[in-house]
């Protein structure tokens, strides 16, 4: 069973979210990926206005109409617009089919403005996916690092938080999130550097490592290889490739009456 934490509508052609989703599912089938978590829409904004993030979330909702048996949606919000973000979380998760929240680079996640967003997400039993990178060649102005995420996680032990890309510089990212049991490492997005998953399993335990691909900018192939080719027990690979994500999403999927 392979569930993918980290998917976008990029890298494939198609005029509608459904058309792009159909293509992505075709590649997922070739690679044995059963479920995809998708977020952000047809055209991205790094610092979206409420109108923009609503439009992007509408794209995801549109794709889910045809593909709810293969995909889960995460709602994209911006902590610069707290009230509108909360309303969007209620629309897409509380009253809609989505199961997680996606935060990207608009606002650094150390900020206390994220607190009501995290609290509401946890109340709904949804998960938070926060993009993180720790770039040697320079951060975007508000881009979060795993150390920023650790700050957020320390304030919200009740929330389930996914550390997007594990900071890219994963040797540092893994260390930064290690003390926080409610933070999980996303394997997606960077090059298929050997040793990432081995270190994550050694330092966090296999239960805290989750496969994500970051398609379509990346390939399923390079990202699956990090896990499939890792020198770790087969039982750990199963956890990382799907069982961990299923465990994290089970509470909200049960609430929504989704049968697996």
């Amino acid at each position: 069973m392979i569930w993918d934490l980290h998917c976008h509508f990029s890298g494939v052609s198609g005029k509608t979210p459904q058309e792009r989703m159909a293509q992505l599912i075709g590649f997922a089938d070739r690679m044995g990926v059963e479920r995809l978590c998708v977020y952000m829409g047809m055209s991205w904004s790094r610092d979206p206005s409420p109108e923009e993030f609503r439009k992007q979330n509408d794209d995801v909702l549109q794709a889910l109409k045809d593909w709810s048996h293969r995909a889960f949606g995460f709602v994209y919000v911006n902590a610069k617009h707290v009230q509108e973000s909360l309303e969007e979380i209620n629309r897409c998760i509380g009253d809609g089919p989505m199961v997680g929240v996606k935060l990207w680079v608009a606002h650094n996640c150390r900020s206390e403005e994220l607190d009501p967003i995290v609290r509401r997400t946890a109340e709904l039993k949804a998960v938070i996916f926060q993009h993180t990178w720790l770039k040697t060649d320079g951060q975007e102005p508000a881009e979060s690092t795993p150390m920023d995420l650790a700050q957020l996680a320390s304030r919200h032990p009740e929330a389930t938080i996914l550390c997007g890309h594990t900071g890219g510089n994963w040797e540092i990212g893994i260390r930064a999130i290690r003390p926080f049991r409610n933070v999980f490492a996303d394997t997606g997005g960077g090059d298929p550097a050997a040793g990432f998953v081995e270190m994550a399993v050694r330092e966090l335990g296999a239960e805290r490592v989750i496969f994500g691909s970051d398609i379509g900018g990346r390939s399923f192939a390079s990202q699956l290889a990090k896990v499939v080719g890792a020198d770790i027990p087969e039982a750990s690979k199963k956890l990382i490739l799907g069982e961990n994500l299923k465990r994290l999403l089970t509470p909200i999927l049960r609430e929504k009456g989704v049968r697996l």
Binding site: F27, R30, M31, D191, P192, A193, A194, S219, F220, A221, S222, L224, A225, K226, V228, G229, A230
Partner: peptide, 14 residues
């Protein structure tokens, strides 16, 4: 061995 070998091989399958 800098990249996981399986990455290149799985790309052929994808």
């Amino acid at each position: 061995p800098f990249f996981v070998f399986e990455s290149a091989k799985l790309k052929l399958a994808e």
